[in-house]
Design a protein around this nucleic acid. Structure first.
Lengths: 193, 193
DNA sequence: GAAAAATCTTAATCTAGGTTAAGAACGATT
DNA sequence: AATCGTTCTTAACCTAGATTAAGATTTTTC
């Protein structure tokens, strides 16, 4: 199955596309191949694409004033990854998007996507639903970080993203949880076994 | 200007509606009047409406296991307020939505809104844009709470929501910022003057 | 307008998680 | 298989913000 085929299958999980529409849609995306550690989006760039992960594993993260990295999101096959904030507000990105493993990403330019909203209305529905889901999972994260202890957050992360936990280094999990690697290590001593 | 007129003006700030469409849209919303402290949405309810604040000030919040309140969002005239999570996932609400002042809210049932998406497509666009913005501001909050100290968060809150800060009690600001009222009080001694 | 309720402040003490530093374990590369 | 990178762990000490408790101030209610 080609990366484009995967994308169409992905779309068809939540919307209906005729074969003609699928062809149009598929033709709007470009393929990007990334080596491990390669950066797809730099801080300061305008994030003007929506990006679908066809293969591999990536992360988006920003650096605070003390140059510490904070991971916003991990993404694996069949997920979307981006600095949505930059994309939606047309401002320079404050995040990096980087491949953690060798990866294949499909991306569509914002202008092209806005045209697609008109030519293939189901795509507008897809992205409305997508932004709804993005909102939901971001809210879950926000509430967690407001009311859960680091240990509770870690336990939840493990049960929710066991597949990701096994693919990324521990210090990235710590960064995602908003704690130091040292403290995560301490937690694991109590939690594991 | 009636509450419905305000709503139409609000829609027309980001999308185009013919007068006929405006009439259809306006007819889909119900008016709810709330007294101070009255609760519009209870934990456990299904949040099956989108809610537009025509007048007043409300908050959405949840209670953690220790019965402490955490404010997710404030809302004033011309904003939308809801437990979006419950609305979007069709799960029982984990949040309360409560009037902080006497308020007027316009709400539309989810089923009716889904019909509207078909009869007045501009409305689907409006809500796609709305969810994008909701995502953006939630992400701003999440990043803030991950990387800013309480003091920095407070300073940002003041400059961004000065109008809200003046309408709600301080302990609610503390709850929104994720700190105790006592600590906010301490911060204010350093910050204010 | 007095009493009750709600909100805000101060101060002493406590704790979850951070910082620093050092070494151990694991992987890549030669 | 030795070297250099990267990742993980341990332990001593530190700090932002929580907790507890009490009183002060403001707002609401009768």
């Amino acid at each position: 199955m080609t990366p484009i085929d995967k994308l169409i299958v992905h779309f068809r999980k939540s919307i209906t596309l005729t074969d003609d529409e699928a062809e149009i849609v598929g033709g709007c995306f470009n393929i990007v191949e990334l080596k491990k550690k390669e950066i797809l989006l730099f801080v300061g760039d305008h994030s003007s694409h929506m990006r679908f992960i066809s293969e591999g594993c990536l992360r988006s993260y920003y650096m605070d004033r003390e140059a510490k990295e904070h991971i916003i999101q991990f993404g694996i096959e069949d997920w979307w990854i981006n600095d949505l904030y930059s994309y939606l507000t047309n401002t320079p990105s404050k995040q990096f998007v980087q491949a953690i493993e060798e990866s294949i990403v499909l991306q569509i330019h914002k202008e092209k996507l806005n045209e697609l909203y008109n030519t293939v209305p189901a795509i507008e529905r897809f992205f409305r639903l997508k932004f709804e889901k993005a909102y939901v999972s971001l809210q879950e994260r926000t509430i967690n970080s407001m009311s859960k202890t680091a240990e509770e957050g870690y336990i939840e992360f493990r049960s929710k993203y066991r597949n990701i936990e096994q693919r990324v280094p521990q210090y990235m999990v710590a960064s995602y949880l908003g704690i130091t690697p040292e403290f995560l290590s301490k937690l694991r001593k109590n939690t594991t076994q």
